[in-house]
Write a protein that binds this DNA or RNA. Structure first.
Length: 630
RNA sequence: GCGCUCAUAGCUCAACUGGAUAGAGCAGCUGCCUUCUAAGCAGCAGGUUCGGGGUUCGAGUCCCUGUGGGCGUACCA
């Protein structure tokens, strides 16, 4: 804030004038005054005592007097120990309020002329979107919006992991058992339809493994226990049978994992992958059919959470890239070849390890692809920054990737950033697909939406809304509740997601903020209907609650920049929440419609308008829409 | 084993990057709806910031150490 710079400068000036000490303005410690003390801005004077010019209290007094005399913004001050609390004048706050131009207020130009690619979402096409993907999507989408609000040209990219053994498993199960079924014929959401075959494949493997064990002369009951008894309560008899089959297998040198790997289903999947790589037409056609269904299903979910992409990448098209760079790296001596033909990079000097970047058989791997796609993006877009929204389990991978690009001499490597976020846990612990605890994204969205519907039916101000508008309202508040719940938490923190608590619509939640907005809009509508005279500029005595609202508003411009620099939507969420709180307090303490005089009415009307705009804008940066009534 | 990371109220999260008496919400308790939306407001209660050292005028924050989680350390992605 400009005012802060003025204060810093004045403090420096005062130290020079009165104590002949020269101090760097940036070292002056400024902070917001804690609300239990009078004042707006606090200068901490402890560090200045080191200059040998008196006690912190004395310095505070001197500075306070100087600031009050020399800065018109400063109306009064008080000193508590080493803290100089400065109050800004009412005139200052009114000036601030009247000077706000909303379009300028809600955007910065720190990213002007810079291009940034944000890659996020990037799902596998064999699994449905789940809670973890939601955090990724919400973060990537919100960060994109925040960057755009700071003047960056943002390109949102999504990389579909559409190939590999996993999707082949779904294909095998589908080919064996679908009998012409389609999402349409079963009434299922297309991505879930495909995923069911992936799940089905797993049980095929189990069935076939049991069959093979029986074939090898083991009892079916014992074999079944071995494959499916995990995590279940077993009787003593079962346990005995289980122990028996295990030791018998060991004796005969039979390994369970190998049996599984060699089931007809697994063989078929591996064959299919080879056929896919060979471009076998039927396999490709099947692959396309299933993936198209998955995309159709994903699309519905993306629309629901208002997430869009500017560019879609498909791993099936990029998985071979990167080899040129490997060659270049070898030439430059960045990489080296081992006897077996594999290509490596030695990162031990950078406190990392030896890493393989290309297999001995010449095929590329994950890191090879990432090297390739990073390069092609740079040539395609010439971006200044490249943000990868990927969970923190891949921290090491990105350290390596960025380092490699740098060693290859790519100057844009400095602009690569891994927006690493913590996993989402359930109260019971980590989500595990094997244990069926994965929270499906679509299900979750429905559950929250339904909770909102119940609440709204009971308490909402929904007169005059059509059925369709009501449906949209439930959806809007529900999606917002979920986004807010997740974005509130700092990205790098691992978070616990309690489905029970996520449908709570009270307290520090998205609906709370939405509610404040609806409330403000409602007041504004009423004022518009009745019409009030008055002039906001003639109002000149700020109530406490009004000033608190203004103080909160004043934080927004800096926060916007900070959120972009830190890639952190939780800062915006905290702002929206605090603004809503301050506004609720204001509404409770002063009246807009029945104010002391028309000037007060007018001022509060305009202030409420600004609050509503800022709630809408800040929530918008989180990818959340807010209703005009609820 | 080595590397990275986390630990704050019963639970979920904050704490302006080293500043004042560590703050919110949920859960619990108490008030407030003939007055602009009670999805709200006001209040009570709840803490040895994992333990132990250290640096500093000042530490939840920095350093060391111990304990306990998580992740990584694949010619998987």
């Amino acid at each position: 804030m400009k005012t802060e710079q003025k204060i810093r400068a004045a403090v420096v000036q005062c130290l020079a004038d009165q104590f002949q000490k020269s101090v760097d303005p940036e070292t002056i410690s400024l902070s917001e005054t804690r609300k239990e003390f009078p004042g707006d801005i606090t200068v901490t004077t402890f560090p200045l005592a080191k200059l040998g010019i008196g006690s912190p209290e004395k310095i505070g007094e001197s500075l306070g007097n100087y600031l009050r005399e020399n800065l018109s913004e400063v109306s009064e001050f008080n000193v508590v120990k080493g803290f100089l609390n400065i109050s800004l004048s009412e005139a200052y706050w009114f000036d601030f309020f009247h000077s706000i131009k909303i379009e300028d207020f809600v955007r910065s130009e720190v990213g002007k002329g810079q291009k940034v690619i944000v890659e996020f979402s990037s799902p596998n096409t064999n699994k449905p979107l789940h809670l973890g993907h939601l955090r990724n999507n919400f973060l990537g989408d919100s960060v994109s919006r925040i960057l755009a609000a700071n003047g960056f040209e943002v390109i949102k990219a999504c990389l579909y992991n559409d190939r590999g053994i996993a999707i082949c498993k779904s294909m095998v199960a589908f080919r064996r058992e679908a009998n012409g079924a389609t999402p349409g014929s079963t009434g299922k959401k297309p991505d879930h339809f495909v995923v069911d075959y992936y799940v089905r494949f797993a049980s095929m493997v189990i069935e076939e493994t049991i069959a093979e064990l029986v074939n090898l002369g083991f009892e079916e009951k014992a074999a079944t226990l071995l494959l499916q008894g995990k995590g279940k309560d077993l009787t003593e008899e079962d346990k005995a049978a289980l122990g028996q089959i295990k030791s018998a297998m060991k004796e005969r040198g039979i390994e369970l994992d190998q049996l599984k790997e060699n089931t007809p289903a697994m063989k078929e999947a591996r064959e299919m992958l080879l056929e896919w790589e060979a471009g076998q037409p039927e396999v490709i056609a099947l692959w396309k059919k299933l993936n198209d269904w998955v995309y159709e299903g994903f699309k519905a979910t993306y629309e629901r959470i208002y997430v869009t992409f500017d560019h879609l990448y498909y791993e099936s098209q990029t998985y071979l890239t990167g080899n040129d760079l490997i060659a270049e790296g070898l030439e430059k001596g960045v990489f080296f070849t081992k006897e077996d033909g594999s290509v490596w990079i030695d990162l031990t000097a950078d406190k990392l390890d030896m890493k393989v970047v290309r297999r001995a058989d010449g095929t590329s791997m994950y890191i090879t692809q990432d090297i390739g796609t990073a390069e092609s993006r740079a040539t395609e877009y010439g971006m200044n920054k490249s943000v990868y929204v990927v969970a923190d389990e891949q921290d090491y991978h990105f350290k390596v990737l960025f380092l490699i690009m740098k060693k290859l001499g790519r100057e844009w490597a400095d602009g690569m950033y891994h927006l690493s976020y913590g996993m989402v846990d359930l109260p019971s612990g980590r989500m595990k697909s094997r244990e069926g605890t994965v929270v499906d994204a679509d299900d979750l969205l429905n559950v929250v939406r339904d909770a909102v519907e119940v609440e709204t039916q009971e308490k909402g101000r929904i007169e005059g809304l059509s059925d369709q508008q009501l449906q949209e309202l439930y959806e809007m508040i529900g999606v917002g509740a979920l986004k807010f719940f997740i974005l509130r938490v700092k990205p790098d923190k691992r978070m616990v997601f309690d489905p029970e608590e996520s449908v709570n619509l009270y307290g520090d939640t998205g609906p709370f903020v939405s509610y404040a907005h609806a409330r403000a809009r409602s007041i504004l509508r009423k004022v518009d209907e009745m019409g009030i005279g008055g002039e906001s500029r003639k109002y000149a005595s700020l109530a406490d609650a009004e000033k608190s609202v203004l103080r909160q508003i004043a934080k927004y411009p800096d926060l916007l920049v900070e959120a972009a620099q830190k890639y952190d939507p939780s800062l915006i969420a905290a702002f929206a929440l605090d603004l809503a709180k301050e506004f609720n307090r204001m509404v409770h303490e002063v009246h807009v419609l029945r104010a002391e005089n028309p000037d007060a009415s007018r001022f509060r009307y305009e202030l409420s308008q600004l609050v509503a705009e800022l709630i809408r804008h800040s929530m918008g940066l989180l990818g959340i829409k807010v209703p005009d009534q609820m």
